[in-house]
Write a protein that binds this DNA or RNA. Structure first.
Lengths: 126, 126
DNA sequence: CCACTGTTATATATAGTATATAACACTATA
DNA sequence: TATAGTGTTATATACTATATATAACAGTGG
């Protein structure tokens, strides 16, 4: 499993692990039902304490991303696509709203925002 | 001075104070050269330890927002408008880029983003 | 001198983060 | 059934960030 951890970051290690896994689920690099590395193996792999991995997995489970089964392992939970879509829309709205608010505050024409969208829209497709 | 502090927030108090003052400077509610409340008076006012206020002011000073003069007080530093504009543009670009990336990842047409801009653009002017 | 500024230092408390270790419980399999 | 792998729970320890309280020091201005 791909997992980049910065030990010096101010972001807690368990948060980095969470973000990493959520990101992989969102990008379908991890699929529904797929098994995650066991707590102990991931612990050895990235040299992080078992308890820290456990904390990350616990929170991911309580947030509905994964499911742990004692004795078997930890698996990617079925995605509630509608819920995900709603969360994503909310996140997008937040970004746009903040951008617009900043434009107003500093008198930047909103046309520049639409231009930025076009630029990133092109530059982002691979 | 207007200052809302949430004691239960996960955001540190000194960070909340910083954000609050930066926001007021950005919105020209605090003007260049204007004097800020003294550390002790603000401490009494919002019932926060002197040292916490000091920490907030220290960081604001090292970030160039304010200037402290021993025995006199703490003042809003002259704004480097060009630098501010650049920072704002960078922040706006970040928001737009994230919104576009999410749209791509979840196959939401970017046209919806431009629509959102229009909506917030209208809704935001008072 | 006095009353207000900011500055520095010390001690203390609490919470979050991270580690190490151990024991327990469940599953699958040789 | 023994064993080796899972997750779970508990305990102790350490470090850091945050926040508080208190005190003393230093500069400004009336």
């Amino acid at each position: 499993m791909r997992m980049m951890i910065s030990n010096s970051s101010s972001v807690p290690i368990y948060e980095q692990i969470k973000e990493n896994i959520i990101h992989q689920i969102m990008n379908h690099e991890l699929l529904e039902g797929e098994i995650l590395p066991s707590i102990r193996s991931l612990s050895k792999d990235i040299k992080i304490s078992v308890m820290t991995i456990k904390k990350a997995y616990d929170e991911l489970e309580s947030e509905g991303y994964i499911t742990s089964i004692q004795g078997k392992g930890t698996f990617v939970a079925p995605q509630n696509t509608q819920l995900v879509q709603e969360q994503v829309r909310r996140e997008i709205e937040n970004h746009i709203e903040k951008a617009v608010t900043l434009s107003h505050r500093f008198q930047i024409p909103v046309e520049e925002l639409t231009q930025l969208i076009e630029i990133f829209d092109r530059g982002d497709e691979e």
